Simulated scan of single mutants.
Amino acid sequence: MSTHTTRGLSPAQVETYRTDGYVVGDGLFQPDTFVALKDHFERKLAALPEGERPEDMDVPHFTDPELFRWLLDPDVLDVVEGVVGPDIALFTSHFFCKPAGDGKSVPWHTDGYFWRDMIEPAGQAMTIWLAIDPSTLENGCMKVIPGSHTSGDGDYRQVSDDNSVFDEELDQNQVDAGRAVPVQLRPNQYSIHSGALVHSSEVNRSALRRCGFTMRYISTRTRFNHDGIGHKHQIFLARGKDHAGNTYADPDRAHPELVESRGPGQNFVGAQR
């Protein structure tokens, strides 16, 4: 397990993020805080209803307010502030767990494509990808194409692969997979990436589980469109003040109605399957 080292991003890390669209950091949480998060996740995983895939643990904070202990942790928000500024909203979160042996793949995409009806510009949202387990080439770590966040939107096509979590992917003619870089992480290491960065991950055929906790944030200068999506969603004020006239939900209570509104076939924020 990596140890806690610094608060926030260094100027060099911010510059790398601006240039490459992603950067890796070490020790996001204090060690005891990370262990508490991992234990919390293990309990949630053990309680999954029969037949529900562990890759589908999206928006868990809507029904589990205890997760705001980590989502609004000052160490996390210090990292976010280095990218989006001092006024921050929590956009969404997701435990993405690929079980050993049959963990699903994620095709080449940008997150912003799936958020285009929710926030504008969608590519300015950022994700912290925290490793709960070791994330390696063997068990299907994320792969990124450095600098692709500056290329603009591409064309998407349908995916029929049952091993994929999405049914859309970037057209392969627009993906220079030969430039892909694996983002391999130890537990409590993290990467951050732009909503416009092209990335993917492969199936997990290994004997090792791969779980990450994605925490996604936007500047409060970004307008959230409550009416532009087919289900209810809410953002939460994380730090600073609002600048866009957004409405924020209460992090001190559960919001099961938001999950219920999504209905079948809407497993991920902004993504229809």
Rank of each mutant, 00 (worst) to 15 (best):
R253I: 14
M142D: 03
R186L: 10
H193N: 14
S201E: 03
T16S: 13
D242I: 04
N163L: 14
E169F: 01
Q189Y: 03
N204K: 01
A180F: 01
P60T: 10
G103P: 02
L130E: 04
P182Y: 04
D117H: 13
G140Q: 06
V106L: 13
P65A: 14
E55N: 14
P121H: 03
T220D: 12
K241H: 12
G154W: 03
Q174S: 05
A254H: 12
V198E: 12
V144L: 10
D75H: 11
R253E: 09
P11Q: 09
W115T: 01
V35C: 11
R116P: 13
G154V: 02
D155N: 11
S201N: 14
S151G: 00
A12N: 09
F236N: 08
G112N: 03
L130P: 08
E120N: 14
R43T: 13
Q174N: 01
L258D: 02
S105E: 05
D155P: 00
V175D: 07
E50H: 12
V24H: 01
P264C: 07
F68I: 05
S201F: 04
D32S: 12
H243M: 06
A47T: 08
A89V: 12
P49D: 05
T92Q: 15
G85T: 11
T3F: 10
S201G: 07
S93K: 06
L71K: 13
I119K: 05
G270C: 03
P146V: 08
D117L: 05
Q184Y: 02
G101S: 08
Q174E: 14
V35M: 10
D111W: 11
D87W: 13
H243Y: 07
S194R: 07
I145R: 08
F95R: 12
V183F: 01
T19V: 10
G228W: 12
P146K: 12
R273P: 04
S10D: 00
E15R: 15
L197A: 13
L130A: 08
